[in-house]
Amino acid sequence: MVEPKHFETQIPSCMTDGLSVQETLIGLMEAFEYSLRDVFAMRLSLEEAITNAIRHGNQLDPQKTVQICCRIDDQRMEVVVTDEGAGFKPEEVPDPTLDEFIERPCGRGLMLMRAYLSRCEYSEGGRRITMVRQRNSPLPILGDQVANG
């Protein structure tokens, strides 16, 4: 059994730094031998959460930072991303699958994270997101899979 690992960093509102942290965290998942499916889910979620924090939260303000904390063991990975922006209300983000929004080029990140993560919760007025992926999670569950039992 591998000992749990903790990783914490603070980055400027810079996409390149965001990508670098993603690679570090994915490296941890690989070290713990998570499946490709788990890695896919977490990479996608990390990209969405960190990009949202930098672009929509901090508005690319170089004076503001994004804090990223990760705890990983052989059963789950938890990542908390906190920005210094004005926050937002997740419940007010429109459903991008509705006919009136389906052709909008943005607004799908939150939906994807909810689909792929075992836990996806906003706190601190929308400035903090907590993401958890359980090892070998069956997520995402697609509609046709539900229908087929």
Binding site: F40, R43, L44, E47, E48, T51, P105, C106, G107, R108, G109, L112
Partner: peptide, 9 residues
């Protein structure tokens, strides 16, 4: 292998 929502846009 990977595609973000920005790419979907």
């Amino acid at each position: 292998e990977y595609l973000s929502s920005a790419a979907l846009g």
